[in-house]
Design a protein around this nucleic acid. Structure first.
Lengths: 151, 151
DNA sequence: CCTCAATTGTTGTATATACAAATATTGTCT
DNA sequence: AGACAATATTTGTATATACAACAATTGAGG
């Protein structure tokens, strides 16, 4: 591991710190995603499916309709219908037509889903430790700058 | 736009600044990717295809074999064979079997590809301006922290 | 009530990611 | 030369992303 230039064997210098920061965010995100995928592999779910389960646990036992799941997802353009269907086939969530509005579909995490998440929780400590190359103050500064970038 | 908690309508507080930073990187990366996709749409290429073209322009007129393209890509797991094939069908790159090692495939950007990139270059100023919500010093600090995180 | 726009979700198609198996070629060892 | 490991790429399959078209339901206004 090293600077972003080394990682992608950049031939020419970046034109600006801003361009370099953009590439660095995209690259680091891919790196994080791969680490997450490896982390969840033994539990037979993907990072995206984990994210949906976390969202549903956050509102449990209150169900969320599909649209509410979508707007809480990290990637707003992804297709909650199909992600939820994958989880349903694994028995981790339930789908129910909402009785008072038949356009809506209520989604609830099942006991099996909650159990899976609590198993994954046990691996969180190790996970957090792997991010401790930066200090808490640096993490705060990172959050501040990223929030400002999207402003 | 606002803090990452608002963006994803987080119900509970993040457990740590580190966890929040991870989510923030993934979220900001998705946000950047979407902005990039919109930027390249009028040129009928995707951000991933643009990245490959940039890599090939960087070594032009020297060809790169597929493996060299792969290791320079932002996402190392993506499949250069198929990305390059899409670009070839658009006439933006050429593929040639390497004469001195028939396992290798040499990839070169075409004149059409170079012309396309130079057209896109004209939009770069506007693009850079949109990242100027953060200062150069903040971009530097961001780069430093991201590099350290991956260490 | 009837029409029509808005809401909510589903489906189709193209692109890219993730990973493993398969293929062809080259270099090495005996 | 023959066997075999290493290299370079291709292909298959599953997952997810991006976007648009479609369908069903609801609510508002005449």
């Amino acid at each position: 591991m090293g600077t972003i230039e080394e990682e992608i064997k950049q031939q020419k210098k970046f034109e600006s710190e801003h361009e370099k920061a953009m590439v660095n965010i995209l690259y680091t995100s891919s790196w994080l995603h791969n680490k997450n995928a490896a982390r969840f592999k033994e539990f037979d779910i993907t990072p995206e499916q984990y994210n949906v389960l976390r969202i549903l646990r956050g509102s449990h036992p209150k169900p969320l309709m599909l649209g509410e799941v979508t707007c809480r997802m990290l990637d707003k353009n992804s297709n909650a219908t199909r992600l939820v269907e994958k989880l349903r086939l694994k028995g981790l969530v339930k789908r129910e037509l909402c009785p008072n509005n038949r356009r809506q579909v209520d989604i609830v995490i099942t006991d099996k889903g909650l159990t899976l998440l609590s198993k994954i929780d046990f691996t969180t400590e190790e996970w957090n430790a792997s991010l401790k190359t930066i200090t808490k103050a640096e993490a705060q500064e990172l959050n501040r700058i990223l929030d400002k970038l999207r402003d």
